[in-house]
Design a binder for these strands. Structure first.
Lengths: 192, 192, 192, 192
DNA sequence: TATGAATGAGTATTCATTCAT
DNA sequence: GATGAATGAATACTCATTCAT
C-alpha cells in the first residue's frame, strides 16, 4: 500500500544484504531510504516488526521463485523445475536465503511470530507436494514424501552453507554443475 | 595454565549459546565470568581474538567428537561411526555447530584468520578421507570422493538447519531415527 | 538558529579553557551543557568536527578582534591598532589564542581540515597587508613585507608563550606596558 | 644511576616525540622499553613524576645545546653562538622545545613542581646574562637586559610556533636563512 | 506523515594504578 | 626489581526509542 513502507523494506533488505544483521539499524535504514529514523515508526511499530516484515518478504520472494514450476505439465517436470528454481534463488538471493533458512537471529528474534513458522511450513510443504505428485505419477518410488522432503531440503540448505563457507567452487557455472551432480546422487535413492 | 582465560572462553560460549552473536559483548561475558570487563583484555587482545579463540575451540570440540571414529577396524565402520558422532555433536553442541558451520557473522568477522579456513578444510577432508577409504575397501562404489563429501556434509548441515528451524521433530529419539533414515536414503546412491 | 549547538560550542570552549585539550571530552562538554553526551551527536557528527568548529570559532573571534583596526584613517594607525587589538585578544582570549596559534594537538588532530590552514594564512596575511600599506605610505621602510610579518607575528606569539609560561609579569597593566616596549624595540629596525 | 630508569625516560621521550602528549601512556612507554607497565612504578612514583623528569631532561638538553656558546672569547660571539645553538635546538629537537617552551599541558600538569619554574628562569637568564655582557662590552646599546631577553626569546619561541604551524618554509636551509634575517631585523633596535 | 531533539543503555577499548607474588 | 592479574573510571560512539511539534 504505502510507498514509503515498501521503500523502507527495500532499504532494510539492501542494508542486510550489504552489512548483515548488525547493519540493520533503524538509522542506517532511514539514511538509505532518505527519511528520518523516526519516520520509520510511522510504518512499523518497532524494529522487531520491521524485521518480521522483512523475513515475510523473504519467504514471499522464495515462493515467487518456486511457483512458476507449477506451470509444467508433468509432476516430474514440476519437481525438476522446483530444484532448478531453488538453485536460482540461492545464487541470486543468497541473503534472503540465509535470512529465512539459516540465521538463528531470525529464529530467536521472531520466535513470537507464529505466522513465520507457517511460512516455513509452506515452503517445506511445497517440496512434499511435489514429491507426492511424483510418487503418484510413478517417477519416484513409494516412500515417505515428507521424509524425502527433509532429505532434499536438508541437502539444498546445507549445500548453500558449504557454498558460503567457501568450501565449494565460487564460479556459478561450476557450482551449478556440482549442484546437479549432487542432486543426481541423491535421486538414485528415491527414483523409482 | 591460565584459569581465567578458560573461564572467559567458557562464559563466552555460554553467552553465545543463550543470546546468539549479539549476546557476545565483552561486558556480558565479563559479568558472567565474575570479573571486570577490562580484565578480559589481560587475556585476549580484543573481541576479535576472543571470538577467534572461541571458534577455534568449536572446531577442536568437533574434532574431539569425530576422531574416536578412527579407532574402528574397517573403513565402513569408521565411516558409520563418523556419521554417528557427527549427529551427537549436532545434538549435544548445537551452538558450536552453528558457530563453525553456519554463521555468516563468523565468516565476515573472522575473514582475516586464515587458520580457520584451514580448520574448515580439515573437517571437510575428514569426510573425504573416510569416503576414500570406503571406496578402496569396496563398501562405497567408485565415485568422486570429494563430491560425495559435499553431498554428505551438505545433508548433514542442512539437516541441522531444518532441525533448529523447528521443521523437524524435537524429540531426540525421533530426530535420531529420522537422521538415520535420511542417511540411508542418501547411501543408496553411493553404496557399491 | 540552533541554540543548543552554540551552547555546546561555548561549553567546549570553556572546558578547553579550564582543563586544556584533555578536558575536551564529549561527556564533560555535555555535562557542562546540561544535556546528555549523545545529544551532542545531533549537532556534530563527531569529536573531530566539534573541535574543528571550535578552532574555526577561535579564528572568527580573532578576526573579530582585529578587523575594527581597518576603520582607521592611515596605514600607520591601522597597523598600530592591529597591534593593540592583537594584544587585547591575547589578554582576553588566551585559550583561543593558544588554540589557533600554538597547540600542536590542533595541528595533528585537524590536519585534514584544509580550511583551517587557509584561516591561518588569512590571519598571517592580515599583518602582511598592514605592513605593505605602511611601506607604501612611507611609515615603514621598504622591506620584505612577508618577512616583517614573520618577525612581528613570531614576537607576538612568543610573547604570549612566555606570558603563559609565567616568565612575564602577570598584572595586565605591566604586561601591556612591556608589550608596547617590546614592539617599540622591534619597530626600530623596520620604521623608515 | 639505574639503567632501566634511563631507558624508561628515553622511551617516554621517543613516545612523546612520535605521538605527542596523548601517546604518553604508561603502557606504551613500558612496551617500548620492553618491560611491564607496573615496572615503571619501581622507578617513578606515578605518571606525573615521570613526566616531570622528562621535562627536566628537556631543559637539560636545551642547556646542553647552549652552554658551548660560553666557550667563545667575546660577549658578542657568545651571544651570536647562543642564537645559533638555540636555532639548532629548535631544528634538531623540536619536540623537546615544544615540551619545555610551548605546551600548556606541561604547565598545567607540573604546576606543583617549582623546580621547573626555576629551570625556566635559568634558560631565560642565560639570555639576560649574554645580553648584559654585550651591553658591558659595548656591542649592544644600554638597555633593560631582561626586556631585551623577552624580545629575543619571544621572537625565538614564536618563530618556532609559526614554523610548526606550517606558515614558514619547511626546508632547513631556507628556515635558517629566514631565522637570521629575522634576528638581524631585531638587532637593529638593540645594537649599539 | 514526518521531523529534530533528546535520552539511557549499551558498544569496544584505553587509562593509570594497585596488589599479591 | 619485576611481573601478571585485576580494577574503576574514562574514552568516543551507536542503538532503539520517545516526545513535542
Amino acid at each position: 500500500m504505502s510507498d514509503t513502507k515498501d521503500t523502507i523494506l527495500a532499504c532494510a533488505r539492501d542494508q542486510y544484504l550489504s552489512d548483515g544483521y548488525k547493519g540493520l539499524s533503524m538509522r542506517k535504514i532511514a539514511d538509505k531510504a532518505g527519511i528520518s529514523a523516526t519516520a520509520i515508526y510511522r510504518h512499523f511499530s518497532n524494529k522487531e516488526e520491521l524485521f518480521h516484515r522483512l523475513v515475510k518478504k523473504g519467504f514471499g520472494t522464495y515462493t515467487y521463485y518456486l511457483t512458476p514450476a507449477l506451470e509444467e505439465e508433468t509432476a516430474e517436470l514440476r519437481f525438476k523445475k522446483t530444484m532448478e528454481y531453488a538453485l536460482d534463488f540461492i545464487l541470486e538471493q543468497p541473503k534472503y536465503f540465509e535470512l529465512i533458512f539459516v540465521k538463528s537471529e531470525t529464529k530467536d528474534e521472531l520466535a513470537n511470530f507464529d505466522d513465520l513458522r507457517v511460512d516455513s511450513k509452506i515452503s517445506f510443504d511445497f517440496y512434499t507436494d511435489r514429491i507426492n505428485e511424483c510418487i503418484a505419477e510413478g517417477y519416484l518410488k513409494d516412500d515417505n514424501a515428507s521424509e524425502v522432503s527433509v532429505l532434499l531440503l536438508a541437502s539444498y540448505t546445507g549445500f548453500f552453507a558449504l557454498y558460503t563457507a567457501g568450501l565449494l567452487p565460487r564460479s556459478k557455472k561450476e557450482i551449478r554443475a556440482l549442484y546437479w551432480r549432487t542432486v543426481e546422487r541423491i535421486m538414485v535413492g528415491v527414483i523409482a
